[in-house]
Structures are given as C-alpha cells and as structure tokens.
Write a protein that binds this DNA or RNA. Structure first.
Lengths: 191, 191
DNA sequence: TTCATTTCTTAACTTAAGTTAACTTCTTAC
DNA sequence: GTAAGAAGTTAACTTAAGTTAAGAAATGAA
C-alpha cells in the first residue's frame, strides 16, 4: 500500500530508504468504511487526508440540504480549511467508498519537514499545482452551463459518474438532482 | 507608493532597512493606463502582478464573447497560469482602471528568496491563504443562485459593483448582462 | 428474503435565465 | 460639441432550471 504513496511522491522528489522508512514509521495509513464521517460541520480538526484508495466527499448542509462541493479520489489530497483557520469546520468530509487514506497533521509535517527538507519543497510545488488546477476548474464552472459542466465531467472524470450517487453529483454541478436527471434524459435523446 | 507594499508585507514578516532597499532596487513599481492589456490569450509570459492601486481583470474569449472570471484589486496578487505552466495563456489580463502594479518574474523571486529567505516563507503563507479563500469562493458560487451571488458580492466586495462595468460583472457572476439587469430591477422592486 | 429507506426518474407547474432585438444612456475620440 | 461606438435597459419569446409530488428502482439492515 505504501508503494502507491511512494510512486506518487517520486513524481516530485527522489526518496532514499531512510526517508521511506521515516514515512512508514509515522504510521499514517488508515482504513475507513464507506459512509464514515471524517469531519463534521462545527467541529475542529488538524488532520489532512491523502487518498490512496477510495473517494472522499465534502459537503455543506444549507437549509437542511446537503450541498456537495468536491470529491477527492486516488492520489488527491485534502486539507480542510479548519486545519488552517483553526476555526470550526463549515463543512463535512465523508467516505463515499471504503477508503485507504494517509492521515497527517501539522505536527507530523513539522517533524518530517525538519528531518527531510525536500518534502517541504514538494508540498510547495503541490500546492502551487493545486492552486492552478482549482482556478481553472472555477473558471470552467463559471463560463459553462449545467449541461456543459456535465459533459465536461464525463470527459475529465468519467469515473466519478460511475462511483458517486447522482444526487451528490448534481449539487457538485450546481443543480438539483431532478435537473440532472432531466439533463441526462435530454442528452440521451439527442444521440 | 512603496509604503503600501511594505505595510502589506509587514502583516506577514518584519522587514529591516536592507530588505526594504533590496526590494526597491528591484524597481518593480510600474504604472499602467486603464485598458492596458498586460497579457493576451495565446501569449507566453513570466510576469506576476501585485495590485497597489487600481483593478485588474482576467477574461477568456469563448465563441467571440468575453467571459470575465476574476477581478484583482488593492493588495491582491495574480500569477497567471501560464507563468507556472510555461504554456500560452488561456486568458487575457487587463487594467479595468489606471493601475500601479508591482511586477515580478520568477528570476527576481529566486534572487530575493536567496538573499532573504523570509520572503519564501511569506509566499508560502500567502499561497496557502489564497487556496483556502479560493476554495471557499468556489463553494459559495456552486451552492448559490445568481441572485444570491449578486447579493453576496454586494456584501463582500461592494466596491467592485461601483468600479466595474456591469457586463463584466455579469459574466463574473456566471450570467448574461441582460439577466443581471433584470435581476437588479427585480431586487429594486422588492424593497 | 423482506421491509424500510434512500435514490432516481418522471411529470406538471412556476420561475428565472438565455436570446434577440430595439431603444436609451453614457463615453470618448475627434 | 458632436458623432460613433459601447454599455445598459427593457421587452417578447424560448429554453431550461427550481419546486412539488408521485411512483419506480435500488440499497441495506433485520
């Protein structure tokens, strides 16, 4: 299981055996059952997650309705805002599927960054990449209609459409489940 | 003019006179006329901008239509994607107003980071803050209607509504200029 | 397996956004 | 100051999303 993580890291920095062992000793690999709530609205936390296997979902509860805003799948990481702001979380984080995650908190980061500064460099590159990716996603969302967003999702993350319930996808696309259902029927008819 | 920048920086790190002088010597303060195009779609660039005075706008041209995706005002910075990806830019960057900007490229960053490592730390904190802010903005956009987005903008960035043309605000809100006009008329009637 | 719950779909109706076009108002360059 | 172009508003019409509700399908727990 570590290998998935090491392969990912090796895209950014080379690890020697010492470094690999240091990571393993942190004992950061954890399994979670589908449906597990990792973080609740209103709760404080200092844990970040990196997905080795499975799928995480973030959602708000607004007027009693779940509003899904993001999914995180293999090789994607999430640092909830509340980890950075130290305020209670505005949203939930849950497992859409059974998950294997690497869980880390800032203390562990400090420890590993001190021992192996190259990890800090890697994190900088990662967060830079993330910022670009997110801005582009936001731009694409703003400049497209719900139908275009759905088609774009089909193209860019077809796996999500298979593994995630429709009503969660719907709010991720910024529409209601009924609208998504209709939209799909409309597209089906077209072809 | 430097003082605006120094005051901003002092929120994050303390600067001594040497460091201030080093910054001034980089000669990064530039003035631009309203309407100036700083970056064109399809063009490569390595310049990032920090707004000391004025307002920048990023927009795509899709099917011959301008789609505005972001505004940057006092004390906000923008590093166009193409600076990081080294690919031609997907969007334009222009001055909505006369601007005083601090312009920096990666070479200058390397130079200043080498001399004064504390700047690197500051940039990490800044980009972390930015990532959080952007994620929250995206979440708010996804989970609201055009009307709610407009009301939210009125509350959070009332200055933008004054200083930016409506048709640019409209696509920033993800709607057409006509819809924004109607939406405003609708709200006016309500009160 | 069965029963309860959740999810998905469909439909009818309401509301608002997109589109096209005409007209007014505002800018700005000459 | 005037004329040309850009920006903003309004209206009529089209399209699609929100809402409410009902029923079908799928899921999961006992």
């Amino acid at each position: 299981m570590q290998n998935i993580l090491f392969d990912f890291i090796s895209r950014y920095v080379d690890l020697n055996e010492d470094e690999k062992n240091a990571l393993i000793e942190l004992d950061i690999f954890k399994s979670f059952k589908k449906g597990t709530v990792l973080l609740e609205q209103g709760q404080k936390s200092s844990d970040g997650y990196f997905v080795l296997e499975g799928c995480l979902r973030t959602y708000y509860v607004i007027d009693g309705e779940e509003k899904t805003t993001a999914f995180y799948t293999e090789l994607e990481g999430i640092t909830p805002h509340c980890v950075l702001t130290k305020e209670p979380s505005e949203y939930y984080v849950t497992c859409v599927e059974d998950c294997i995650l690497s869980v880390a908190n800032p203390d562990m980061e400090v420890e590993i960054f001190t021992k192996f500064p190259k990890f800090e460099k890697m994190c900088m590159v990662l967060s830079e990449e993330l910022l670009v990716k997110q801005q582009i996603d936001f731009d694409a969302f703003k400049t497209s209609s719900p139908e275009q967003r759905y088609l774009n999702l089909l193209e860019k993350r077809p796996d999500l459409i298979q593994r995630v319930p429709q009503h969660q996808l719907a709010s991720f696309l910024g529409i209601t489940p009924q609208s998504l259902s209709r939209l799909r029927a409309r597209l089906q008819k077209k072809r």
